[in-house]
Computed example of a mutant assay.
Amino acid sequence: MTRKLVDVAAGVLLRPDGRYLLGQRGPDTVYAGYWEFPGGKVEPGETPSQALCRELDEELGIRVTRLRPWLRREHLYEHAHVRLHFFEVCAWEGSLDDKVHSALDWVEPAAATREPMLPANGPILKALRLPRTMGITEATRMGVDAQLEALDRALDAGLRLVQVREAGLAADARIRFAREVLARTRDRGGLVVINDDIELAQMIGADGVHLPARRLMALSQRPAFEWVGASCHDRAELEHAAALMLDYALLSPVLATDSHPGEPTLGWGDFRALSEGLPMPVLALGGLKPDDMETARDAGAHGIAGIRGIWAAGA
């Protein structure tokens, strides 16, 4: 049966402490009692962002002053084929005055989800658990001891996502280093993914794997880890990562880097165009520092990834 495609705008209202707002659907609605992100149907003549601003005014009594495009997902319900446009709502005016939900709740990303969750909204909860900054190790260049010291500084400053990428280390040294990174990061509640080495990730019990673009494009199914991401450089690679239902992608190079001087870069305009409308978070990579976070998120990025810029920031 062919179902009509319905566009819906949904808002992830974010507080400074990182909590996001969920509403419980009222008793006289479809999926009564289910939790959802606030929003509603895009009416004829509206853009998704205009629809979300209208819906949040009508439902919650607030006026949006700043939002960012984030993810786009599709879901087949029994009654409709829904295309959801998710936005991060960063600022608004007015106090919440809910007119449609049975309850509202500000949720901590790391906390257990609210149940039952509207099916189309469920995958968004995992995306919100993904930290906004990824540090990519370079112990081969820095030296193991210097890298671990830089890692400790970054973890103390709030880093919670680390990619171990050390093909240049001897096998035994790489295993020891990966175990040490995992122990230190786990101690702070963070996540560790291993670049291009599924066996090593399994051996040490890492949180997941990170696929280079060449490995990504050779795969027909997702590796069996909780967290799987990939490096991408064009739309075809990003769409393949989405088809495999990966949890995130890195898109690069955004800006010029010291390690690859003179190479072409995307810039923020191409980054926005390439990453638009995808169902998984995309982090920007290439010549970035923590100060670039707001620029990246305004361009549609979930956050940033970096090598030298991340480790130097905590020095």
Rank of each mutant, 00 (worst) to 15 (best):
Y34P: 07
G208V: 09
L244N: 14
D28K: 12
A301T: 07
L255W: 05
T2V: 13
T65L: 09
T65R: 13
E237K: 07
A167T: 00
W70Y: 14
Y248G: 13
A213W: 03
P261A: 00
L84G: 03
D247A: 15
I198K: 06
G229E: 04
E239A: 13
R186P: 04
H210A: 04
M203A: 14
P264W: 09
L21R: 11
Y34D: 09
D105N: 12
P264S: 11
A299N: 09
V254G: 06
V6T: 14
Q221R: 15
G229H: 04
L84T: 11
E93Y: 13
L182H: 00
T29S: 12
H240D: 15
D172K: 12
L13Y: 05
L104Q: 11
V162H: 01
G26C: 10
T295Y: 08
G61V: 10
S102M: 09
I136T: 04
R176T: 02
G26H: 10
F37A: 10
C232E: 02
R54S: 14
A157R: 15
T140W: 06
H79E: 05
M293E: 09
L21T: 11
L251M: 02
H233D: 01
G205Q: 04
D172S: 11
A9I: 10
R297I: 03
P281A: 09
T29A: 05
G168P: 01
A249L: 09
M117C: 01
E115Q: 06
E237F: 05
